[in-house]
Every structure is written in structure tokens, then in C-alpha cells.
Design a protein around this nucleic acid. Structure first.
Length: 874
RNA sequence: GCGGACGUGGCGAAACUGGUAGACGCACGAGACUUAAAAUCUUGCACUUUCGGGUAUGCGGGUUCGACUCCCGCCGUCCGCACCA
């Protein structure tokens, strides 16, 4: 009874057509069943999908198909994060319009994704570069503006003078633009900002409620938001040389005020600027600071440098005590007030600084129990816990008590009608600058009028569409260069005015696409509240950790802003988040040191050693480190090739097996081949069962031992796989499927001799085949349909509901317990499953093996862990 | 520097709230089928042993009847942030 090999090339397209014809994965908004929203981070249409996509989308699809089988109305959409710089680079390099390039890529990648057999609702597909999408984004921008969530202010940016554009921090390498190689300048530009800082506290606090997010991501966001509690303290200045009579500092350590040795301000602090106006030396110093300011790697090595302004600041707790005021290179204008007081004994940076300039230090906190007289700080600042010393009225207090005491005193003291000290919660988080001087992005819908100022584009004129006829010949923003686009009449006074030519950061596009998916057809507004309320929050969001901070934080802010402006009704967009690991591969190098593609390498194995040779030349190849797949290292495997030779199911199965989903998975040829072998093996077993049972086997009254064992294996696997999908433990699911498959194989072998199957075995085999088919269906959907059909099951496995494990088959009548002697396993006893502790103890005492192991020693105690283990203590 | 995660056979890993360490897969060895190969099937596979057992979850301690799991101290790898006052 030879079974034909399963041919994915034929079967996979066939089933996809069936699914599509039956609209199996389209989700109706008026479905009344409970909803479940599975979303994978949508891709940037770079040209082709890569293995990382395959892994990401395979995982999401398992959840989607499983939840569908569990009776949920599953929303599982797909779209394109389609604005961005690569399209403009392509335009420059290949002379193709960004739109054409983008849509061609989308077409290619859509085809690739479809070949994976994902259960996506393609009727909801969207691209962020489409006016039907970004018009709503513009509408929301204006609504946010009206709601006071948008700001226009000057900010420091990395400016590439050659490309005439703003660069993100990560696009500045060693102080130079990554494309032009030009030295990047820090410029002050007027930019649009979303006021994310207004939600700093909330975004911070709400993290605690995101219990289905990885701790790691929550922590990263906490650190990024960087909430700190401190005190604003006003130091009076002795002279008016800086054209102001005080300097305000921010500190989280007001307790150390008596350890102060200096005050320092940022190079771009108003005081620094004022003094520099008449002081060329200081001016030169400030210039130097600016230069080292951007290159982040230098910060490590950079020495703490300061410039004494000659000003003296009066200590807020002692009018007779003054401190020097420095301009220092390590003070950031952007954080706090751009000014600090330095307490060298308890801050390493301040200590480095005073040691350089000979300002000395006074320890004011000593560890509990230390002799204050002997507590001296030289090279290492003490930032630990302790009690106050050398601090007058604070002496003996704890740090917390001292902070409170100083805050209280300075709060109640006033100078010029304002308190000298003021408690302040500070955040590291800054407002989100969204202005980009680029073409391929969502236009910011405002008009600048010399008379009326900045005027929103009226709703009726939305969308502000990108012009098609642009050229990328000149550096800078093509929108700005366009001959006519920016010239419009002011919507308010009718006089000639100009459009804003900045476009929005592409992170804005991805900050609400998950909401748009709930009703992507809607034209009159960004969202339909009924649909948003039905589907949001996303129940399971899956993507890479690289978006742990920006994308996820922006989306959290945007959802709150949408709530405030009535476009959504909730705060947190993603109830469950999962960050999957990367797909990595060995790297290969030839004798010349050049990278070699995996396809050109033949690996020979002898024992535990592996050696590489070039396929054509036979030259030895060095097997290098396992790294993230990247074109530059040539260790990329193209999903198209894999799907073409093995089928989508094999690729999906391999991506889900072996490694835990949150860890990196190593792509190996052997692994794929193993997956491909399993596809055939499963098909063979199922087809054979189908043939031998004829797809029909009723439940007989008597179930023999062998049949019962197989039934138990089936139902246990069913139970375990369901639980593991819920936990996203796909590698464990795969293992359970293998275990069940082995059991089926054994049972089939045992029955091979018999010309006619016993009724109970036939029943158990058919049941096992149906169950294993359903178990693999979320992971290998095409193969599962083929098996389902072969077994004569009704309909499609893609619409079948998830089977229920029979509770009675998950339990055993009797169980074998390991027996330990002082923690080491020495024997086993078999007891009835419901035996109580006393009964188990009796069996253990009576056990021959236990007696032998005791060697005559007396039992002191017997610990019985019901159903698990027995430990005999002697 | 600060914060976090991880460390288990030749390899990827499993072990649920502390309860038989190594499930499952890959690789490898032996065998069957075959003229032969592929495919398939059977079987072995942590180390060690005087075949009773002994030793093993990065290293060293601790808590416990019992530790891969909890605590303390090291070592190593990876990731995030980085002069944030």
C-alpha cells in the first residue's frame, strides 16, 4: 500500500484558492461572537520579505487560526508601513518615482506573503502612503492641534549641510551624516512636536498594568521615560554680570546640599551665553563643547571640562557661603534646568570635575556605623545609603529624612514672592519631534500666512496630497523645491501664503494603523468608534524587540491622544505583546576573507567536527560566527527559494520548531530538511490510516489496552498543544506533535500484520489522525487540509472547531511514583492514582526495592508529594 | 558606568508554582530493505564504572526532606541606556 508523496507545489496553491473563494479569513464587523485581534507588526515594503517576516507571521498565524478554531471572531489584518526614506533613495539612485517603487515592492511582497498561506483578511489591506490613509492622519493631526497636543517650537537637530536635511540620531555616525559623510551641525530649527511629555506620568504608571507585556520591554520604557523626583533650587547670584540675579538648578539629591562645591551650567545655558558675549575665551570653550556634543561615543572618553565664569552663587541654606559658577561640558541644557549644583563626594561626575580643578569635596553621607571623621572620599564617589554627616541641622538623618527636611525649608522660604525650593517630578522623555524635511511622508496640513500666522488646512481641503511631479536632483526637500505646490492662498484671509513643506515622521503612520484596521473602508473619519471599541485593544501583538521603545511608546501616546479627540475610547492599544527573536545563520568566509553564500558551501562532518568547502572550487571555507541574516555577510536565505523547493508549510514548521519563539533561531539546512521529512511522514501516516480505515470507524463498546494507550496519547497531545499555543510556546507544540506522531507510528506498525484492523484500533487510529491533523493545522495549514480531506472529514479543517480533550483520558488509574532516599532516586512504586498519603506511605514501606536501598537504616520521615514523588528521609 | 537577560549532551532545546534532569528534534553510530543509492524502518547515543553504583544543569557557597528552579558571591555571553544631576 504505497502512499503517494505529498506534493506541496500542487496542494498549497489549491487550498489557498479554496480559502480565498470561501472568504474564510474575512472578518465581519457585525459578527456577534467574541472578538480576538491578532496583529503582527506590519512590514516596510523594502522589496522582498525575509526570514524574519516568515517567523513573525507564522507565529501570528498560529494564534489566529487557533483562536478562530476556538470560536472567536478573529481580526488578523495586514498592511504596509509604506512611507520612508528608502523610497527616496531609490528615486535618486534608480530614477524611479517613490510611489512606483513602493507599490511595486508591495505587489511583490503581497505575493510572497500570500504564498505563505497566512490566514489574513486581505480585504482590510492598507498602505500608509495612500491618501485614503494619510488624509485621516492629517485630520487627527489637526484635531490634536486643536486639543493642545501639538506644539511648534525650536529644537536642536542634527543637520546635514550637504543633503540639507535633518538626520535622526542613529543616522549620525562619528559626527558625520551616514549618506553624505558631511560633518553634522547642530541647528536650531522650528519643528512640530507632539506633546508626549504631557503623558509622561501616565505612560510611566500604566506600564504596571501591561501584565501581558515582556518585563524587559516595560523596563526599557520605564528607563526611557526616566521619571525622577527632585527639587528645583534657586541660587542667588552675587553679581549681575550674566544679566540675571539667580540660577535655578534641578537636583534629586537635595540632601547633599551641604556637600556642594560648585554650580555648573550647560554650554548653551543663558548664563553661559550672557557671559560669553564679552568673553572670547568662554566663547571658544562653548564652541568646543558643541563639537564633541554630538558624537556619542566620545562622551565616554571625553574629559570633564569646565570654565569658571567668575560668578559666585549664594548657598541657599547659608547666605555667607558662595560657590563658583562654571560652564561645564557635561551639563545638558535639555535636562532639568540645564544647571546643577555639584556635590563631588556623592556623584562620580562631580568628583572627576573637582579633582581636575582642585575644588575639593566634603562627604555628607556616610554608611551606617562609619566614623564620620574617618570617612574620606578621593577617587570614588559614594552613592550608597547612609546617614547625614557634616551637614549641620541634617546630621544624623537618613537620606530620605534629609531630602524631606531640605525640601520643606526651601519651599517655605521665599525670594521675590517665589519659593526658593520647589518639588518637581522630572522626565527624561522629551516631546516627540515629528517634522521631517522629506518628500515621501505624510504632509503636515498647515499653511503659514504672514498675516494670520499658522493656519490649519480646512477639513474640506483634506487630504493635502503629495505632488507627483517632483525631482530629486537637488539636495534638500523636494516639496520645498517644487515650483508651485507650496504656494496657496491663506484659508483665513485669502492672501498668498505657503504650505508647510515638512512631512511627518513615519513613526506617526505606524502609531494608529492598528486602529484603522478595524474599519479601513471608512471615508468620513479615521475610525468608526463602534469598530474600534469592538476590536481594540489588540489582544496579541507580535514583533521584534527593536521597536520596544519608539514605536510602542508612540502608539501608546497616540492612542491616548485619539481618546482625547474622540477617535478611540481606550488608553492602551496592545493588551498582549510578544517580541520574537531573530533568524540567524552561520557565516562563511573564503581564503581571501570575503563572505561566501551558504549555497556555495559544502559542509563535511566527521565526528563532532565540521569543515566547509567551496562547492565549485573545493577550496576550504572558514565557518564563522552565527549572526543575524544580512546581505553584507551573505548569510541570507531567501524565503522564496525555500517555499519553492519545500513548500510554505515546511518553512513555517521549521520556523516554529526547536527554538523558543523569543530567542533567536538558527537557520540550518538540516533543520529544514528535518521539517520537510516530517511533512512527508505525517502525510504517510494519515494517508495510510485513511486507507486502512476507509475514513470510517465508529466507537466500539470495548476499547483494548493498545487502543486506549493511543487514545490517551492523542488527547494528551491535544491538551498540551492547546495550552502551549495559549502560552505562545510553539516549540513545545511541535514537540508534542512529534510525540503523538511517534505513538501513531508505533500503533500503525503493530497493526501492520493484521489484514483487518480491530474495531477499537481502527477507531483510535482514525481519531488520532484527525486530532494530529487539527493540531498541526495552525502551523501547517495546507498539509492539514490535505490530510483532513484524505480522512474524509467534513468541510475544511480551517473552519473546524478545536476539539475538546476527554478528561477521563488525561488521567491514569494507577501511577508510578519515583521514590527518593534523602533526595536521590532509589526506587519506584506503583499506586492507584487516587491513593492518599497514608496508602502511598504503606506501599513505600512495603516495597522491596526501598527496603534493599535502606540497608537496614531506620526511616525517619516520609514526604509524599501527591502524584509526583516520594522522599524517604533516613 | 547603570540596568536587564541568559549560561543544561556534539547541536537546538524540555523540565508548569522547588519534586524522576536531558522530553522532542538535529547530527552521528549500528542494523534492516536495496545490485546500489536516496527514501523509509529498527536501534543506540550526558560522562564514568570494578555493572552495585558514582558524577553531572558556568564556578564557589547557602536555604531545603529535595535546587536547572530560591538566596549570596564570582566568571562568561548577549541586549538596552549612556555625562539625565
Amino acid at each position: 500500500m504505497a502512499v503517494e508523496r505529498y506534493n506541496p507545489k500542487e496542494s498549497e496553491p489549491k487550498w489557498r484558492t479554496v480559502w480565498e473563494e470561501r472568504k474564510l479569513f474575512e472578518t465581519r464587523n457585525d459578527d456577534t461572537r467574541p472578538s480576538y485581534y491578532v496583529l503582527e507588526m506590519f512590514p516596510y515594503p523594502s522589496g522582498r520579505i525575509h526570514m524574519g517576516h516568515v517567523r513573525n507571521y507564522a507565529m501570528g498565524d498560529v494564534v489566529a487560526r487557533y483562536k478562530r478554531a476556538k470560536g472567536f471572531s478573529v481580526l488578523h489584518p495586514m498592511g504596509w508601513d509604506a512611507f520612508g526614506l528608502p523610497a527616496e533613495n531609490a528615486a535618486k539612485q534608480k530614477n524611479v518615482h517613490p510611489r512606483e517603487w513602493t507599490y511595486a515592492n508591495i505587489a511583490t511582497m503581497r505575493g510572497q506573503l500570500k504564498s505563505m498561506g497566512l490566514s489574513l483578511d486581505w480585504s482590510r489591506e492598507l498602505a500608509t502612503c495612500d491618501p485614503s490613509y494619510y488624509r485621516h492622519q492629517q485630520k487627527m493631526f489637526l484635531d490634536f492641534l486643536k486639543a493642545g497636543l501639538v506644539d511648534r517650537k525650536t529644537a536642536k537637530v542634527n543637520w546635514d549641510p550637504v543633503d540639507e536635511t535633518v538626520l535622526a540620531n542613529e543616522q549620525v555616525i562619528d559626527g558625520r551624516g551616514w549618506r553624505s559623510g558631511a560633518l553634522v551641525e547642530i541647528r536650531e530649527l522650528t519643528q512640530w512636536f507632539f506633546k508626549i511629555t504631557e503623558y509622561g506620568q501616565e505612560l510611566n504608571d500604566a506600564l504596571d498594568g501591561l501584565t501581558r507585556w515582556p518585563d524587559k520591554v516595560r523596563l526599557m520604557q520605564k528607563n526611557w521615560i526616566g521619571r525622577s523626583e527632585g527639587l528645583l533650587v534657586r541660587f542667588a547670584l552675587e553679581s549681575n554680570a550674566a544679566k540675571q540675579d539667580e540660577v535655578e538648578v534641578y537636583t534629586t539629591r537635595p540632601d547633599t546640599l551641604f556637600g556642594a562645591r560648585f554650580v555648573a551650567v550647560a554650554p548653551d545655558h543663558p548664563i553661559a551665553k550672557a557671559i560669553a558675549a564679552n568673553n572670547p575665551e568662554l566663547q571658544a570653550f562653548i564652541e568646543e563643547c558643541k563639537r564633541t556634543g554630538t558624537a556619542q561615543e566620545n562622551i565616554d572618553k571625553a574629559e570633564k571640562l569646565g570654565f569658571d565664569t567668575g560668578l559666585r552663587a549664594v548657598h541657599p541654606l547659608d547666605p555667607n557661603w558662595t560657590l563658583p559658577v562654571y560652564v561645564a561640558n557635561f551639563i545638558l541644557m535639555e535636562y532639568g534646568t540645564g544647571a546643577i549644583f555639584g556635590c563631588p563626594a556623592h556623584d562620580q561626575r562631580d568628583l572627576d570635575f573637582v579633582n581636575k580643578y582642585g575644588l575639593g569635596n566634603t562627604p555628607v553621607v556616610a554608611p551606617e556605623g562609619t566614623d564620620p571623621a574617618g570617612f574620606v572620599i578621593t577617587d570614588t564617589a559614594y552613592d550608597g545609603d547612609g546617614r547625614m554627616i557634616n551637614s549641620r541641622f541634617l546630621d544624623g538623618m537618613t537620606i530620605a529624612e534629609a531630602k524631606e527636611e531640605v525640601a520643606r525649608r526651601l519651599e517655605s522660604e521665599t525670594r521675590g514672592n517665589r519659593p526658593v525650593g520647589q518639588r518637581k517630578v522630572n522626565f527624561r522623555l522629551r516631546d516627540w519631534g515629528v517634522s521631517r524635511q522629506r518628500y515621501w511622508g505624510c504632509p503636515i496640513p498647515v499653511i503659514h500666512c504672514s498675516d494670520c500666522g499658522t493656519i490649519p488646512v480646512p477639513d474640506a481641503d483634506l487630504p493635502v496630497e503629495l505632488p507627483d511631479d517632483v525631482s530629486f536632483d537637488k539636495p534638500g526637500n523636494p516639496l520645498d523645491h517644487h515650483p508651485s505646490w507650496k504656494y496657496v492662498d491663506c484659508p483665513q484671509c485669502g492672501k498668498p501664503a505657503r504650505r508647510e513643506t515638512d512631512t511627518m515622521d513615519t513613526f506617526v503612520d505606524s502609531s494608529w494603523y492598528f486602529a484603522r484596521f478595524t474599519d479601513p473602508w471608512r471615508t468620513e473619519s479615521p475610525t468608526d468608534r463602534k469598530a474600534v471599541d469592538r476590536f481594540l485593544p489588540v489582544d496579541q501583538y507580535i514583533g521584534g524587540v527593536e521597536h520596544a521603545i519608539l514605536h510602542l511608546l508612540y502608539s501608546r501616546f497616540f492612542t491616548r491622544a485619539m481618546k482625547k479627540t474622540g477617535h478611540a475610547g481606550l488608553d492602551e492599544p496592545f493588551a498582549g505583546l510578544f517580541t520574537q527573536g531573530m533568524v540567524v545563520h552561520e557565516t562563511y568566509r573564503g581564503a581571501d576573507g570575503g563572505w561566501v553564500e551558504p549555497g556555495d558551501v559544502r559542509i563535511e562532518v566527521s565526528g563532532n567536527e565540521r569543515k566547509g568547502f567551496h562547492v565549485e572550487t573545493g577550496a576550504p571555507i572558514e565557518i564563522g560566527a552565527i549572526e543575524k541574516m544580512s546581505k553584507s555577510k551573505k548569510n541570507v536565505v531567501d524565503p522564496d527559494d525555500i517555499i519553492a523547493s519545500y513548500g510554505a508549510d515546511t518553512a513555517r514548521w521549521f520556523m516554529l520548531s526547536d527554538s523558543p519563539p523569543d530567542r533567536d533561531v538558527i537557520w540550518t539546512d538540516e533543520g529544514v530538511q528535518g521539517a520537510a521529512r516530517f511533512v512527508q511522514r505525517l502525510w504517510r501516516l494519515v494517508a495510510e490510516i485513511a486507507e486502512r480505515t476507509g475514513g470510517k470507524a465508529g466507537k466500539p463498546a470495548e476499547i483494548g489496552e493498545a487502543a486506549l494507550a493511543l487514545r490517551k496519547a492523542s488527547h494528551r497531545a491535544l491538551d498540551a498543544v492547546g495550552a502551549d499555543i495559549e502560552r505562545l510556546g510553539f516549540n513545545r507544540c511541535v514537540a508534542h506533535v512529534y510525540t503523538l506522531t511517534n505513538a501513531i507510528g508505533k500503533a500503525l506498525d503493530a497493526a501492520a500484520e493484521k489484514p483487518e484492523l480491530d474495531a477499537d484500533i481502527a477507531f483510535a487510529l482514525l481519531e488520532a489522525a484527525a486530532i494530529v491533523t487539527q493540531l498541526v493545522a495552525p502551523m501547517m495549514p495546507h498539509l492539514a487540509e490535505e490530510c483532513w480531506q484524505a480522512l474524509g472529514q467534513a468541510g475544511l479543517v480551517g473552519e473546524a472547531s478545536w476539539p475538546q480533550a476527554e478528561a477521563s483520558l488525561l488521567k491514569d488509574d494507577s501511577i508510578t511514583l519515583p521514590v527518593q532516599l534523602n533526595g536521590k532516586k532509589r526506587a519506584e512504586v506503583t499506586v492507584p492514582a487516587d491513593a492518599d498519603t497514608m496508602a502511598v506511605e504503606a506501599v513505600v514501606r512495603a516495597s522491596e526495592a526501598v527496603q534493599r536501598a535502606l540497608e537496614g537504616r531506620a526511616i525517619r520521615k516520609i514526604i509524599v508529594v501527591p502524584g509526583r514523588i516520594v522522599n524517604v528521609v533516613v
